[in-house]
């Protein structure tokens, strides 16, 4: 049974009636999101007073923000760790295991080479490889947080994921440049 706690100050999980966990049922999230948005969205208050419309906008904004955060496993992990008092400190803590850094450097070189050779297929290959790595890490993150409760290791993994997601964006940019 899913219940909502539509309190503006509630955390994202509570807002959508979900447990505070990294493993998440995408469909439940989607359903809650749409159900709440169907209530609060400005279109549902289009002929209300200006003040009401503005409030509806603030609520819809809040719900969108919460949804975007929970939808992406990386952002969700980061947010959840913050909630649990283990802020991954993305900005200040940049220490990474050497193995991870070497792998990242290899991938980056592969992207650079493919980009300067305008090789779309090669970029796709790196992209798929990275996507698979990210996917495996997402699964590991869920078990670290939900099962092992090893939040320090989880925080390290979240930091690594930020790197990987950034690289993925760069590959997308490169693909754009190559196919344009």
């Amino acid at each position: 049974m899913t219940t909502f706690d539509l309190n503006f100050a509630a955390d994202h999980f509570t807002l959508f009636g979900l447990a505070q966990a990294q493993a998440l049922d995408q469909e439940s999230l989607d359903n809650s999101f749409r159900a709440i948005q169907s209530r609060v969205h400005p279109d549902k208050h289009a002929h209300a007073s200006e003040a009401d419309q503005r409030l509806a906008m603030q609520w819809a904004t809040r719900i969108n923000e919460a949804y975007q955060t929970l939808k992406s496993p990386g952002r969700r992990g980061r947010y959840l760790l913050q909630l649990l008092g283990h802020d991954p400190q993305i900005e200040s803590n940049t220490a990474m295991p050497a193995e991870f850094l070497i792998n990242q450097m290899e991938l980056r070189e592969a992207v650079e080479d493919a980009r300067s050779a305008a090789n779309e297929d090669a970029l796709d290959v790196v992209r798929v490889r990275l996507l698979n790595e990210i996917k495996a890490d997402y699964e590991r993150l869920a078990s670290l947080i939900d099962v092992d409760r090893d939040l320090d290791t989880a925080a390290n993994l979240v930091r690594q994921l930020m790197f990987q997601e950034k690289l993925l964006n760069e590959i997308d940019d490169a693909l754009e440049a190559v196919t344009a």
Partner: peptide, 16 residues
């Protein structure tokens, strides 16, 4: 008012 309207309801009960 939202709490009054939504509290305790199942998602599926909300008309989508």
């Amino acid at each position: 008012s939202v709490q009054r309207a939504l509290a305790g309801r199942n998602v599926n009960q909300l008309s989508l």
